[in-house]
């Protein structure tokens, strides 16, 4: 039944849109559409954004692994191209601090009336376009450190649930500590 639903193109576009509305609503309620809250997170003054991400990851890890265990969807980990991930990740981080928003939250910020976020979105379109244009020149670099779409349990040969349990405990402990010290 679910597989039939995945093939219905129009319904899928509508589902993407509806899930996006929920996502945008929650990002705004969490404060993640606000430049000030994101930059204060990067300055380690207010940990609201990481608390949202950590809670989402704990909830997501458990649910997604139950879904792939019992239902048709399968995990779709991205390829671990570690060199482009480290360099691209750092470039992303620099942009993250300057724009004070990320690709998802910038569109959310536009919805809340942030005019400057529109320039951020235009910049991201340009950045993605520049990447597409130089892609043929850096294709070798992109592929040379590719370890494939590996997951942490696979690379350690450990049952995924042990990793989920460990990560959940560590993330909850970090959040407990943050609440304790008033961050």
């Amino acid at each position: 039944m679910l597989e039939e639903l995945y093939k219905k193109k129009r319904k899928q576009l509508l589902l993407g849109f509806l899930i996006g509305i929920g996502f945008g609503f929650l990002l705004d309620r969490g404060g993640a559409t606000d430049f000030n809250i994101i930059v204060n997170q990067l300055l380690l003054r207010d940990f609201r954004v990481l608390k949202i991400i950590f809670t989402a990851v704990i909830t997501g890890m458990i649910g997604v692994h139950l879904i792939v265990r019992y239902l048709p969807p399968e995990l779709q980990p991205k390829p671990c191209q570690w060199k482009p991930i480290i360099i691209g990740g750092l470039i992303f981080g620099v942009g993250f601090a300057i724009l004070g928003l990320c690709p998802g939250t910038a569109t959310g910020a536009m919805g809340t009336g942030a005019v400057h976020a529109v320039f951020g979105v235009i910049g991201m379109l340009l950045g993605a376009g520049i990447f597409a244009s130089v892609y043929t020149h850096i294709e070798d670099f992109m592929g040379e450190s590719d370890l494939g779409p590996v997951t942490i349990p696979e690379s350690l040969s450990i049952n995924a649930w042990w990793i989920i349990l460990t990560f959940s405990i560590v993330l909850i402990a970090i959040m407990f500590f943050l609440e304790r010290v008033g961050l």
Binding site: G60, M61, I87, G120
Partner: peptide, 28 residues
């Protein structure tokens, strides 16, 4: 900032949601 984000996200293969929430939840 946006140009750097757009470029970096495509090089890294995802952003704060694709890697930071979805990918991490899959233990990628």
């Amino acid at each position: 900032g946006g140009i750097l984000l757009g470029f970096g996200a495509r090089m890294a293969g995802g952003c704060t949601s694709g890697h930071g929430i979805s990918g991490t939840s899959q233990l990628s």
